[in-house]
């Protein structure tokens, strides 16, 4: 029999609505409130050993305390599975469920199942966590879908509790966690491709193997004020580094950035710099490193007194950088720019 702790909000614990949303974390032994419905769905295959509840506002206002209290309660009971929700379209409740599951997966390693409507804002956080131990099931928008949601969660809880490996999201019905696994299929790619095309040509339904993703859009910062002299820095992804590549950048898939001092230089002399980059013909860059780091032009404009060039430049060879790594590198460089009180950046992309 699978042992389960069910985590729910104050409303589904039967304590009350908005007026009770401030209640702190509490625990009831066995199944109470919506957990009784879960127990009914589990039947004799599982047992709800405790029901943990929290006020929606309490979790929202004291997320760290709330999470710590819930994890402590779960940790002391060592259930085989944690069930949280269903939260339907309730944003605060959804966040509580996803955060608790993430915490459990990270610090306790116990598998979790939660459920909510696909448009609940907490679903994005779930996708971002990539927790292998957490499954989020889609529900209807409102509590009218309670029974079917509990039935699905109970089914998942039993399978997870018995240590069963679950299959791909599409087959199992959970929302993908942003994890893609390399696998064999029963047919070569060429067959799948031509069959997909024939389906499209016959206007039959088909399923893509890579859904379109929407990328973040960067909002440009406001222009620099002409009132005061700005400090400008250069970031280059060209891979122009001192000759000899002292920090051992790879020509592709780099995971760090570096800063090199140019305060004493007026120009970059060929032979003292080289482009470490696998994605373009570096011969031109090596002959004239200013293509990647236009120090000559910057020094000429700097002499007008309109800006001051920062004493170092930032570099990472951008070739084949993973988006998540490049995002982290961007954040680290941005933090350094802030610390150094730099007003503007010239980004030389290659």
């Amino acid at each position: 029999m699978v042992t389960v702790v069910h985590v729910i909000n104050q409303f589904f614990a039967g304590l009350g609505g908005e007026d009770k949303a401030g209640v702190p974390v509490g625990t009831a032994e066995g199944a109470t409130g919506a957990a009784r419905g879960l127990q009914a769905q589990l039947g004799d295959k599982g047992k709800v050993v405790a029901t943990i509840y929290f006020g929606d506002n309490y979790f929202h206002e004291h997320p760290e305390e709330a999470k710590a209290a819930i994890l402590k309660e779960i940790g002391s009971r060592k259930p085989q599975v944690v069930v949280a929700g269903p939260a339907f379209n309730s944003g605060r409740y959804g966040v509580g469920c996803v955060e608790v599951c993430h915490g459990v997966a990270e610090s306790l390693g116990i598998p979790c199942v939660t459920a909510m409507h696909e448009e609940n804002p907490a679903v994005d956080a779930y996708r971002g966590y990539h927790d292998l131990n957490v499954y989020l099931l889609p529900t209807r928008e409102t509590a009218a879908g309670m029974n079917e949601a509990l039935m699905a969660m109970a089914g998942f809880a039993c399978r997870l509790g018995s240590g069963e490996e679950l299959g791909p999201a599409r087959e199992e019905g959970y929302i993908p966690r942003g994890i893609r696994r390399l696998e064999r299929t029963d047919r070569p790619g060429v067959e799948r491709a031509v069959e997909m095309l024939l389906k499209r040509l016959r206007n039959e339904p088909f399923v893509t193997e890579v859904p379109v993703q929407i990328w973040d859009r960067a909002v440009p910062a406001p222009p620099l004020s002409p009132e005061r002299q700005a400090t400008i820095a250069v970031i280059t992804t060209s891979g122009v580094v001192p000759w000899g590549n002292p920090d051992r950048f790879k020509t592709y898939r780099n995971t760090f950035w570096q800063k090199y001092n140019i305060s004493e230089l007026k120009v970059l002399e060929p032979g003292k710099w080289e482009a470490v980059h696998g994605g373009y013909n570096v011969a031109f860059m090596n002959q004239n490193p200013h293509y990647g780091l236009p120090l000559d032009a910057l020094r000429a404009s700097e002499s007008d007194g309109r800006f001051r060039l920062y004493h170092s430049y930032y570099v990472v060879p951008g070739n084949q950088g993973s988006p998540s790594v490049m995002k982290r590198i961007g954040q680290e460089i941005a933090a350094d720019l802030k610390k150094e009180q730099i007003d503007g950046v010239l980004l030389v992309a290659t």
Binding site: R181, L182, R184, P188, V190, A193
Partner: peptide
């Protein structure tokens, strides 16, 4: 990465590899 293995990346779908969302 599979770049160092000749034929390590299946450009045109000769084999049955794929990736599935989990």
């Amino acid at each position: 990465a599979r770049d160092m293995v000749i034929g390590g990346v299946d450009n045109w779908g000769r084999q049955s590899w794929t990736c599935r969302a989990y």
